[in-house]
């Protein structure tokens, strides 16, 4: 199978607003694929659709050949055991230590002995460079460390697919560099398929094999890093170069300033 994820004619609406409108998107196996686009274009929603946390209005979402929206609860949970997802906030369990957070999926889904779980957890923490932090609580971690722990937890069950939701946002340059290197090296070392959702252009382009840029409910550009940077679409250029005004307007839709200022008593 060439593609691990195949999305065809996906339509998803929220409050009658189309977030995706007839979108086709394919995630090749063993590669790092980036989904980029301005804030509010539905990048995180796309990950939740792939993970079956949301259901589309129309279209097909196939992961490893299985049609996600039609799966039973058990089928969906079995599929999710083959996925890992790193949330923007990390999603660490605040009442569990770093060690227990990483051990959580192993304890839930396997019958391994405590000694075996200990070895596996320490190996996963070693991969993200936090073996020494195993006894800390999530409240004692920096933002970058919390994401690395969440990453160790996401790969605890050796998934085929790992999805990252804004892994670089709010990180200092050192943490960002560590995460960039980790995402690429884990993908190559473990033979994963990686999907990164991000709006950090340089970092994402530096590790992505293939990039989709989404905006206004559709794909406005796709290709490898070179093809994306040379794309001519005005929306794409505005996004890549961070222009404050353009097809995505600076101002939220509103009445004219004159009308608003002269209106009486209406806040």
């Amino acid at each position: 199978m060439k593609n691990l994820i195949e999305i065809n004619k996906l339509t998803f609406k929220r409050n009658n607003r189309a977030i995706f409108n007839n979108v086709d998107l394919f995630i090749p196996k063993g590669k790092v694929t980036a989904i980029m686009g301005p804030s509010g274009t539905g990048k995180t929603t796309l990950l939740r659709l792939i993970g079956g946390q949301l259901a589309p209005a129309n279209g097909s979402i196939k992961v490893a050949g299985q049609e996600v929206p039609t799966l039973s609860r058990n089928g969906l949970y079995n599929l999710r055991k083959r996925m890992g997802m790193l949330f923007q906030t990390g999603g660490l369990f605040t009442h569990l230590s770093v060690f227990e957070n990483v051990a959580f999926p192993l304890r839930e889904h396997t019958q391994l002995s405590n000694a075996m779980i200990r070895s596996l957890v320490l190996m996963k923490l070693e991969m993200v460079g936090l073996r020494g932090a195993r006894d800390l609580m999530p409240s004692e971690l920096s933002g970058g460390m919390a994401r690395r722990v969440a990453l160790a937890r996401a790969i605890a069950l050796d998934p085929e697919l790992i999805m990252y939701d804004e892994p670089f946002s709010g990180q200092d340059p050192i943490s960002m560099g560590v995460l960039v290197k980790l995402i690429r090296s884990l993908n190559d070392a473990l033979g994963l398929t990686t999907v990164i959702v991000s709006h950090d252009v340089q970092e994402t382009l530096s590790i992505a094999d293939y990039v989709y840029v989404i905006s206004d409910g559709g794909v406005i550009g796709e290709g490898d890093g070179g093809a994306i940077t040379q794309g001519q679409s005005p929306q794409l250029q505005q996004f890549l170069h961070g222009l404050p005004d353009g097809p995505v307007p600076f101002h939220y839709p509103a009445n004219t300033l004159k009308n608003d200022l002269l209106a009486e008593g209406d806040a």
Binding site: Q53, Y77, F87, Q88, G91, P105, E108
Partner: peptide, 21 residues
């Protein structure tokens, strides 16, 4: 708070049912 900090969502994505757990 577990919901607001994505702990329930991450549990779901780890194939653990929050209703059960």
């Amino acid at each position: 708070l577990m919901k607001a900090t994505d702990q329930l969502s991450s549990m779901e994505m780890m194939a653990v049912d929050p209703l059960q757990r």
